[in-house]
């Protein structure tokens, strides 16, 4: 069965703990998005990533800087 794919913003982290901290912070602040296993298109390794809508990027970057959250990179991809 073919799934409908939509453009998504993916944020990666330097560690699993940082990704889980992101989830806690997002819940606390009411930020949309969710934790997912890091897509294999980004890396074949294991890890966790934050997935949200592309238009959230600006708000997300601001929150990351304000809370001094460690992160690696943003990707936009079809998921």
């Amino acid at each position: 069965m073919k799934r409908d794919r939509t453009l998504q913003l993916i944020l990666t982290f330097p560690s699993a703990v940082a990704a889980m901290d992101m989830e806690d912070m997002a819940r606390e602040l009411g930020l949309p998005g969710r934790l997912i296993p890091i897509p294999t298109a980004i890396t074949a390794g294991c890890g966790l990533a934050w997935k949200t809508e592309p238009e959230q990027r600006e708000a997300l970057e601001r929150v990351l800087w304000e809370h001094d959250m460690p992160f690696e990179a943003f990707y936009t991809m079809l998921l």
Binding site: R3, A16, A19, M20, E23, R34, L35, I36, P37, L79
Partner: peptide, 16 residues
Amino acid sequence: RLGRTLLKAFLYALTQ
């Protein structure tokens, strides 16, 4: 904490 996160990730990956 990691175990709960992993299970959520598993169920998401299942949908994919």
